[in-house]
Design a protein around this nucleic acid. Structure first.
Lengths: 144, 144
DNA sequence: ACTAAATAGTGGACTTTGTCCACTAAGTAT
DNA sequence: ATACTTAGTGGACAAAGTCCACTATTTAGT
């Protein structure tokens, strides 16, 4: 009982710590021409190859009208394209255009480099430990 | 070189994973009568006991005019109070009122309970491991 | 097949959140 | 005394996100 209470405090301390890290990393993207949500949307399309808006919605836990506007903007900028779904006439399948892929890869590379900077001073040993801790946390929290 | 590349991808996977967790936890606070920034502001005042606006600003990496408005709102709601600083006539020292402390503690307790829910299904052993991993990550990333 | 309910997506109207800038007042340095 | 910096406020605006109503399909129940 008491251990749990202490654990909760320590988890919350980590959450604050990691919120700051993520905020720092995100700040970088905010200086790009695209918003966080736009980049995340591109990411979802990129990894899904060809997805429905509804899939992005659930993946991002985002409002459908908000997403609709994001997709509209990305379409207008020529970064994504929609083709009507054959299974469902209400839906379309969204994919990155060549240009969209190019833009996404550039942003993605910048994010990689940022992480690179974060870990550049770590020894290979420490880096390996870091990754192991992260994977362990995911495993523990995923199976609940 | 190559290991680093893989590590970067794994760190980014963790970041996405943990961003979702934090988002989930924050969603809860968003249903409260206070915004995330307001709660975070109260937290800073609570832990600092009596702080200057500029301290909150740097702690939260927040725009000063934005903070000014948040403080104004919290003052109007009777949650915080300002007393002129004796060292610097431009600044004031901010602290939680009795009411503010009450509100903050309620929110804080709700956050605790939320974490509780997140870990309720974990064995004491797993919970201990989780906390250890979190602390290890902080140590590794802090000393860089 | 026929109606009712659910789902996919769009757009209007709005609120919340956050930014940029200019400004006052006080402190700091030369 | 003068210039520079710092603390905080407020106007004006932009960006982000929410809520609701609506159309067009698809799905389920009878």
């Amino acid at each position: 009982m008491k251990d749990t209470k202490i654990a909760v405090q320590e988890i919350r301390a980590f959450n604050r710590f990691y919120t700051d890290i993520i905020g720092l990393l995100d700040a970088h993207l905010l200086n790009s021409a695209y918003s966080l949500s736009e980049v995340r949307t591109m990411y979802e399309i990129y990894t899904g190859k060809s997805v429905q808006a509804s899939q992005i919605m659930t993946a991002m836990h985002i409002d459908k009208s908000y997403l609709s506007r994001i997709l509209k903007k990305l379409t207008q900028e020529g970064l994504i394209s929609k083709t009507p779904s054959e299974e469902d006439a209400r839906a379309s399948l969204i994919s990155l255009t060549e240009e969209g892929l190019k833009v996404f890869k550039t942003l993605n590379k910048a994010s990689d480099e940022q992480i690179d900077g974060l870990i550049s001073s770590l020894s290979p040993r420490k880096l390996e430990q870091l990754v192991n801790h992260m994977q362990a946390i995911q495993e523990i929290l995923q199976h609940k």
